[in-house]
Write a protein that binds this DNA or RNA. Structure first.
Lengths: 403, 403
DNA sequence: CTGGCTTTGTGTCTCCAATAAACAAATTGC
DNA sequence: GCAATTTGTTTATTGGAGACACAAAGCCAG
């Protein structure tokens, strides 16, 4: 007997690229999907149909005609609103957040949580996974994978957290293995992936936010302490040979500056983080609120016009600009996006920051690099979901066949 | 009538990857070509046969059996000794060199030349192309393309030289267009490609030299003045979004150091180039020989044991190590290779240099990066040839069909 | 020397996934 | 209503790969 003819006799190879195009919003209709994939209409049709039967996308065959266009309107493509989700989680100094994230970076459900500062990784990730499992139970969604963002460099391929800042975790903790153990213990038959939070934020911003369309995207951001960076090259996260690239915190931005634990002076880390701004403005860090919140308040609150605050802001902006210029010289990105405190420094005086970068980068004069703020809420969380989605984006058929 | 069945009914897509494997020496036999390509023996056989009929490789079917091996010996694959060549050229402060380079980075013929310091690009490249055309005439080889290495950043996609050091060329000279004009004027129907000399050296070292097999290769080198860098990621040159990446010369390596024209102090450029070593050793640059030759003589000649020279060497090594550590933190390479004076600094005291890099890079302690000297003669020249060969490596059939 | 064992090269058959080409459908504008 | 335009669908064809069987070329044991 012959096996019944499946509907998919073409488009198998294009399935992954097609899903990525819809996922990142670059293929709003079947017609542009055809041209973007560089295949025939027949193939694109088969691909779209298959992705629809897989429950990943929606093909709207009763389209609203675009105004001023000629010819037959194309079917509209969108991410399935009730499709499967990824379990995403972010751990930071103040607690954690678990969420379910669908294709297109859509946060379907979310649950904040708290951690005691001295909890070990297994305990924290156990709570995280329990929260995520609860969301899955409540929504009844199918889960394609799990992703975790941690405030630490994550070594590849080991999946260990080398410097978990402000968490009471041992350096070198095998977070990915622990995460997977917790997932298995919770009865979730999915694989878990881990990544540095700023790396994942950059990935999310590239696919769904301010980094969309950039070929060489540089992302620089502060958390509560220190500075992190990330680079997305041609749509893929570039994290170096061992996951440890873009440790940008120790670029020298003030030769006579503060001493840094790295042994040098005036590092980006200690000159442009929230504490640096507070100190430059002559404010002692208060007990209430995080350093980031206090520093941000300085930039956007009622004291933003105080001369001392304005001077401090200008100084820190200049330091940041010097650091960005150094990175521009080495990485030659075509867009820079800023997060954390840096985002608010940019907002405080965009012209000054852009001028410093242009002035101090070697090729700045011949073509300034656009510098923009991050635009996505919970970008690290969405980025963690991207990790989990990646196998599906690479090969939807085999990734979804295993369940 | 039906077209006569060509010998190639399979292997068309694998043609390029297969040629690259032979070109880089990673497929010495047909059996490993099969496994490396991940195809069946039948496909690998068709590919090897087609590449042989194209005149690009040689299949030795009367092989010498490997000692201690079982089974039928595999056919040996090698680059065709009398196949087509690329026209490669390098321009530097002292003159130029033209050469014909076959697959595998083999220099088939070479011709040095001189330039007057005040000659303009059109004149210099005219002489360069004339020398290359002479070599082609003498050898009767077929030419697949032309590549040019220049001591300047080359902006992409324009192909302009932004800072031609020590050449009397205007900044922003459209070297690629000029090069192609000269090629056309000489009656050569090939396209010319241009690149920065250190970028091309790194590419050549990756494919045929000390960088072979590295996934994230960082190359740092001096010429006569200044410092350049290059990065080869997964076998492809990474030159940033506009060809301007790895301008590493202005990393701060000595906060209290010499002033630099960039506006800062103690840049890698002015602290680790040949002039810096000469000055640190208290030697005035002499009129005879290039700065590079004088500095190298200090490291390897009779004065290498003088205390002042040893101190200067140690100081410059420390500065270089600091710069490399900064790059390791940002790029996380899995191998570093050094050229120019830096190669001889490494040779003078490898332990010291490696110790500084390990000490000052954030993750050095958990896994030191191998640091090696460049090993290829004329690596920029070979790299220029790689540029010309690339279209053939990408798609041998269509690249060779157009002639 | 012969026969087994192992590995590699070759020819044939088959099949998957894409294109090409013709046709049908949906909209705009006259 | 009708041409023009663009998009979706169906059918036939083809290119390029794998599966398989078999042949070839070397070891090794007896």
């Amino acid at each position: 007997m012959t096996s019944p003819r499946t509907r998919l006799d073409r488009g198998r190879n294009a399935l992954g690229p097609a899903l990525e195009l819809v996922h990142t919003g670059r293929a709003p209709t079947r017609a542009v999907l055809t041209t973007e994939l560089g295949v025939t209409r027949a193939t694109a049709g088969a691909v779209a149909g298959e992705l629809q039967t897989l429950g990943l996308i929606t093909v709207d065959s009763r389209p609203s005609a675009a105004p001023g266009s000629q010819g037959r309107p194309s079917h509209r493509l969108s991410v399935a609103a009730d499709g499967p989700v990824a379990l995403a989680a972010q751990v930071h100094a103040d607690g954690f957040r678990a969420a379910l994230v669908g294709l297109g970076g859509r946060i379907v459900a979310t649950a904040p949580g708290c951690v005691t500062v001295d909890a070990d990784p297994a305990q924290v990730l156990g709570e995280v996974v329990a929260a995520g499992a609860g969301l899955l139970r409540d929504t009844g969604r199918r889960c394609v994978g799990a992703g975790l963002a941690v405030p630490s460099a994550v070594a590849e391929p080991e999946g260990t957290a080398l410097n978990p800042l402000h968490l009471a975790w041992p350096a070198g903790a095998p977070v990915r293995d622990i995460f997977n153990d917790c997932l298995a213990a919770a009865g979730l038959d999915v694989t878990g992936h881990c990544g540095n939070d700023i790396n994942l934020a950059a990935l999310a911003e590239h696919r769904h936010g301010a980094g969309h369309g950039a070929a060489h995207l540089l992302c620089v951001a502060t958390g509560h302490r220190g500075v992190g960076g990330a680079l997305v090259l041609e749509g893929r996260l570039h994290s170096g040979s061992a996951g440890l690239a873009l440790e940008v915190g120790h670029l020298t931005v003030d030769p006579g500056g503060r001493p840094c634990h790295c042994g040098s002076r005036g590092c980006l880390d200690v000159e442009t983080d929230p504490l640096a701004l507070l100190e430059a403005a002559g404010r002692a860090p208060g007990p209430a609120g995080s350093l980031l919140a206090q520093a941000q308040d300085l930039l956007t609150g009622e004291h933003a016009t105080d001369p001392a605050v304005r001077d401090a802001t200008a100084t820190v902006i200049d330091r940041l600009g010097l650091g960005l210029a150094g990175l521009v010289n080495i990485l030659n990105p075509d867009r820079i996006i800023l997060g954390g405190l840096h985002r608010w420094l940019l907002a405080a005086d965009p012209d000054r920051l852009r001028a410093v970068v242009e002035e101090r980068s070697l090729w700045g004069r011949s073509g300034a690099v656009p510098i923009e703020p991050c635009t996505l809420d919970h970008n690290s969380l969405v980025g963690a979901a991207e990790l989990a989605w990646q196998p599906v984006l690479d090969d939807p058929l085999s990734a979804l066949a295993t369940a």
